[in-house]
Design a protein around this nucleic acid. Structure first.
Lengths: 231, 231
DNA sequence: TCTGATAATTGATATATATCACCGGGAAAC
DNA sequence: GTTTCCCGGTGATATATATCAATTATCAGA
């Protein structure tokens, strides 16, 4: 992890969190003066579950995984953290501890903003507060849907969901590099890694996807969606 | 459902949501003038998943279940709604649709507050906004933990969790009336109702609980906690 | 270029959990 | 008062999924 401010100011930053649009020039300045940047190499831990939440995290570039360290050291991957997004678990407003860990997958450039400043802005700027509530609510709604999907869908449906997530949300492309290992794909879909391998193969055999261990290409999107919905 | 205002005013209401303490007298008055009460009989639907979120709901008395209607008409019970709590899904701030349904289990007295008024108060009162964020965050954190538990624990652990939830959160007592049917317990723990029956019996045979179909008594709390943690 | 170490893959097997079929009882509906 | 339907309960069986064991690929150093 190296710490040098490469970004000149929040005002001109192209990766800025869109909710900052609700801040006044002075408020944005306050943010700018209370932030620091850091870069991380693949594999490095950016935030550690259980540690104090002294900062809100924003991704400027790269990709990371957010995950909960669960029972018997078994991880549960929540999402892929992407540039422009606020990465802040609910713990910030509950017990001042990170609810989940974040680890870099690719090289990551991140921006940490002092949480007390952030909290203060929420208190004094109603529109900003509302936009934060919208952001939190959207994540919360996704989590609820995910919980139901994980509970009610079988492996094929769960894996299809995740393949579509990468295509629609992460890469916005039908073809992409699978940046997670089979093990990690399992931690995201609640499957054993062997099952991930087998079902990927099934999907390839039936012509729904093309898969070359590190590359995924969705060939029959309609069918994949049907698999996802059927459970 | 019958609609008559029995509660005189928010100011003196004993079941008032604790976050309303952050409102000024005038703001609380605004709430009071934009609410209506309703009572529900057991089984009646209080909020329907997918319908527009024109109101925030508060329970004044009674108990209800909040649940998501998932795949193939299979329900997933999220929680037991209790007096004094805000019942508002993330959908209010995302797509203006209820994310989950709510149905009365016992007789329920509920208070509906105009959502536009609620939203306005969030915008103009920073402390109130912050307390709402804390409330939402606490629920969100519970959901994340629940998702991991459901994914990583086996049936015994999941059922133990739910029995402890009723004891610690809902009734605050080691002995209680099980207000959910076996079927519903299954919808809460992601188990088939037959498995709920079998494992309850196992727990009774091993002296951890006493169970008389409608009554539950936790006899060996330590052991139940161990079962919950072991998975 | 070798060489551990880690990841992907495969087949065989074990286990957890769901489903099916059925019974009896009680409460609600007609 | 009968009928219907849902709930609790039980045993047998089917199925999804995890685990185990072993083999091959991949890749970053030495």
């Amino acid at each position: 992890m190296s710490v040098v401010n490469l970004i000149n100011s929040c005002e001109t930053c192209t990766h800025r969190w869109k909710n900052f649009q609700h801040l006044t020039k002075e408020e944005l300045n306050l943010v700018n003066e209370n932030r620091y940047e850091a870069t991380f190499k693949p594999g490095e831990t950016i935030m550690k579950q259980g540690s104090p939440t002294s900062n809100a995290l924003f991704m400027a570039s790269g990709m990371a995984k957010t995950y909960i360290e669960g029972l018997n050291g078994k991880n549960f991957i929540l999402s892929i953290a992407l540039p422009g997004r606020l990465i802040m678990g609910p713990g910030s407003y509950v017990d001042s501890r990170h609810t989940y860990s974040v680890a870099a997958i690719t090289a990551v450039q991140a921006c940490f903003i002092n949480f007390e400043i952030f909290r203060q802005l929420v208190r004094i700027n109603g529109a900003f507060a509302e936009s934060l509530i919208e952001d939190i609510s959207a994540k919360s709604q996704l989590t609820l849907k995910r919980m139901v999907s994980l509970s009610q869908k079988k492996m094929h449906g769960r894996l299809a969901d995740t393949l579509l997530y990468f295509s629609d949300v992460v890469f916005k492309n039908a073809e992409y590099e699978m940046i997670l290992s089979r093990q990690e794909l399992g931690e995201m879909t609640n499957m054993a890694k062997e099952c991930v391998v087998r079902i990927l193969k099934e999907l390839e055999d039936s012509g729904v996807i093309y898969s070359d261990s590190s590359k995924i290409k969705i060939l029959d999107r309609e069918k994949l969606i049907r698999i996802s919905e059927k459970g």
